[in-house]
Write a protein that binds this DNA or RNA. Structure first.
Length: 478
RNA sequence: CCGGGUGUAGCGCAGUUGGUAGCGCGCGUGCUUUGGGAGCAUGAGGCCGCGAGUUCGAGUCUCGCCACUCGGACCA
């Protein structure tokens, strides 16, 4: 039946995935565009998702001894330029402040694109002894990068993130920190966002400017394109030396500490949209959903219905579940569509018939499954169903990931597989950047990572035929 | 940054050879409704993206800019 659509409609993902994504961003009320290109407003619903992510991650960081700090938003040009590689890497996308009031500044100031320089500058003044190490810092803030092409969450000129910065007495400790934080991200993606990831190391070409090694968690979206989820960098003592960060070691000699940094951003919201969303809108993993259960009273004007809905609201809230009730006088259909659009994991319907049977109907957002639940079992069923949705989302995403990793022995084969199926194409690789460029040129794919879990697919590089050093994943990346 | 598309009410759109702006939905109010996108009545809502130019007169024509969007290039 061709009913006229009343809730704001979104484009089908099969018709136009990019448009579908943009529609969800705006119509699920996550973001609104600001008046400067590439800047967005995180609306209350979008920000609530970010707050839930922050809360969980921040808790994990603190469990491993990290503390939060706040650094300034402006970096003097001279300070930014002390480490050559970092500057070169970021130069094209730094925004500058040149005026203070009506007067030109003597030295222009960069909006931070990342804060390594300021952490180093700070440490160069406060660090004295090995006894003060490690320093395990993190900050939640926004950074600015003057991107040319922008999309909500995925690439914006300002984005919100956390950046962890640590310094350690030894290289081994710093390397262990880098790995620990990468695993922390991987766990967050898999257990909280319900998005399976591939962990690995970035190639020289793809690594962070100035890092000795960059590690990444890579995930796959529903259009089978790759998205870098979060990164963790090992710097060695490169920045310490550039910024003259020193401490007196156990041997009473002046030493340079070893450093890491690691970051994750509001881009993760984009990952959630594209990993779980469907043609009815957003689908949120319960762990980050601002509203986990929406109660929809049916025929709320009839005696006892509203009261019962309010009673259930209090009861479910007491379980520690984020629950709301929709007492608006919109129609049943409108409410269903609206809360589906916003990705609420469970909808609880309660009406006169249910009350008569001492039950309610609960509908899962991930698969549409409806269950009649006795009101006596609600305290048990609600948490179980939330877990089931969380797990259901992960299982579906894992299945899709597993089904979209293909092995190829040549560039032609890799290209064909990518064109036919999308996803990650794994090949052997000699380690030469020229082969990465060739793969990009001929198959349109960039290297995503050298996975920690290596497989031996053959002896030679798929691009040049020389002896292979690693197995590597390729993909079309956001 | 290069190329394509688009900017008219909150959203989706119409607007003729230039003559001063309309429709649907939504929104406000009232009543009736309510188990998958309700009905009737009534009302409010516009710097036609911004700025120049042509013209007696510009939503409409010209130029510049801004923003959004798609594709590329670039991009921890």
């Amino acid at each position: 039946m061709a009913k006229e659509k009343k809730v704001e409609q979104i484009t089908d993902m099969e018709t136009d995935f990019a448009q579908w994504y943009t529609d969800i961003c705006r119509k699920a009320e996550l973001v609104e565009y600001a008046s400067v290109k590439g800047f967005t407003i995180l609306r209350p619903y979008g920000y609530a998702i970010w707050e839930n992510m922050q809360q969980i991650m921040d808790g994990e960081f603190k469990k491993t001894g990290h503390v939060n700090v706040a650094m300034p938003v402006l970096i003097p040009e001279s300070l930014l330029k002390k480490e050559g590689e970092l500057v070169n890497g970021f130069a094209p996308e730094v925004a500058w402040v040149t005026m203070g009031g009506s007067e030109e500044l003597e030295e222009r100031l960069a909006f931070r694109p990342t804060s390594e320089t300021m952490f180093c500058d700070h440490w160069s003044r406060v660090l004295h002894s090995y006894r003060e190490l490690p320093m395990l810092y993190n900050q939640w803030c926004s950074v600015i990068r003057w991107e040319k092409t922008t999309r909500p969450f995925l690439r914006s000129r300002e984005f919100w993130w956390q950046e962890g910065h640590t310094i350690h007495e030894t290289a081994e400790e710093a390397q262990a920190e880098t790995e620990q934080q990468l695993n922390c991200y991987a766990d967050f993606f898999e257990k909280t966002l319900a998005i399976p990831v591939v962990r690995g190391r970035k190639t020289e070409k793809e690594k962070f400017a100035g890092a000795e090694a960059t590690y990444t968690v890579e995930c796959l979206m529903k259009d089978h394109k790759a998205l870098q989820g979060a990164t963790s960098h090992y710097f060695g003592d490169k920045f310490s030396r550039a910024y003259d960060v020193t401490f007196t070691g156990r041997d009473n000699k002046l030493q340079y500490p070893f450093q890491t940094s690691w970051g994750s951003t509001t881009r993760m919201i984009g990952a959630v949209i594209m990993a779980h969303g469907d043609n009815n809108g957003l689908v949120l993993p319960p762990k980050i959903a601002p509203v986990q259960v929406i109660i929809v009273p049916v025929a709320a004007h009839k005696p006892g219905v509203k009261e019962k809905a309010e009673e259930l609201l209090a009861q479910i809230s007491a379980l520690g579940v984020r629950v709301q009730a929709d007492f608006s006088d919109n129609s049943m259909g409108w409410k269903c569509a609206q809360h589906e659009m916003k990705g609420v994991p469970l909808r609880l319907e309660i009406g006169p018939r249910d009350i008569e049977n001492n039950s309610c109907v609960i509908v899962r957002r991930d698969n549409g499954e409806k269950t009649a639940v006795s009101l006596d079992e609600l305290d048990v069923q609600i948490p179980q169903l939330l877990d089931a949705v969380q797990q259901g989302l992960y299982d579906a995403a894992k299945k899709s990931l597993d089904e979209h990793i293909f092995a190829a022995g040549s560039i032609e084969e890799a290209k064909k597989l990518q064109e036919e199926h999308g996803g990650f194409i794994k090949t052997m690789w000699c380690g030469d950047e020229a082969c990465e460029l060739k793969m990009k040129e001929e198959a349109g794919m960039s290297s995503r990572c050298i996975p920690f879990h290596q497989e031996k697919l053959g002896e030679t590089c798929a691009c040049c035929g020389r002896p292979a050093k690693h197995m590597i994943y390729w993909g079309i990346a956001y």
